[in-house]
C-alpha cells in the first residue's frame, strides 16, 4: 500500500516536472499544480496511512495513535493546500496579464519584454 502510493506520488511528481518544462504557460501552470499536489500527498503519507481514524476526539477515550491518525502532517498539508492555492491563483492572474499584454503563451517569447 505504502509502496503503491509512493509510486503514485512519483508519477505525479514526474508529471509536474514535465509540465513546468513545457514552453506553453498553461502547461507550466498545470505542472505547478501537479507538483504541489504530489508534495501534499508526500507530506500526508509521512504520517502513515490510516483508514477511518480521523484526528477528532469523542471526548471520552484518551487519544492515541491506535484510535487517531497523526494530526501533524494533516495540519501541515492543510496549510500547504491553502498556500499552494494562493500561489496558483497568483500565477493564473500573472499569466492572464501576460497573455492579454503580449498575446502569446510561449515562455520563450517573454524575452521580448526584457528590452
Amino acid at each position: 500500500m505504502e509502496a503503491f502510493y509512493a509510486i503514485l506520488i512519483g508519477i505525479l511528481f514526474a508529471g509536474g516536472i514535465y509540465g513546468i518544462l513545457r514552453r506553453s504557460m498553461v502547461r507550466v501552470i498545470v505542472g505547478i499544480i501537479l507538483l504541489s499536489q504530489s508534495i501534499n500527498l508526500l507530506v500526508f503519507f509521512s504520517g502513515g496511512a490510516n483508514r477511518g481514524k480521523p484526528a477528532i476526539m469523542d471526548g471520552e477515550t484518551a487519544p492515541s495513535f491506535s484510535t487517531m491518525a497523526d494530526p501533524l502532517p494533516q495540519a501541515l498539508v492543510l496549510t500547504a493546500i491553502v498556500i499552494g492555492f494562493g500561489l496558483i491563483a497568483f500565477v493564473i492572474v500573472l499569466f492572464q496579464r501576460v497573455f492579454s499584454r503580449l498575446q502569446t503563451d510561449d515562455t520563450q517569447e517573454l524575452f521580448k519584454t526584457d528590452s
Binding site: V82, F85, G86, A89, F90, I92, V93, Q96, R97, S100
Partner: peptide, 16 residues
C-alpha cells in the same frame, strides 16, 4: 483573510 484573498483574485480576473 482567505475569503478576501480568493474574492480579490476572482473579481480581478472577472473584471479583466
Amino acid at each position: 483573510t482567505v475569503a478576501g484573498f480568493t474574492l480579490k483574485v476572482f473579481f480581478s480576473l472577472c473584471r479583466e
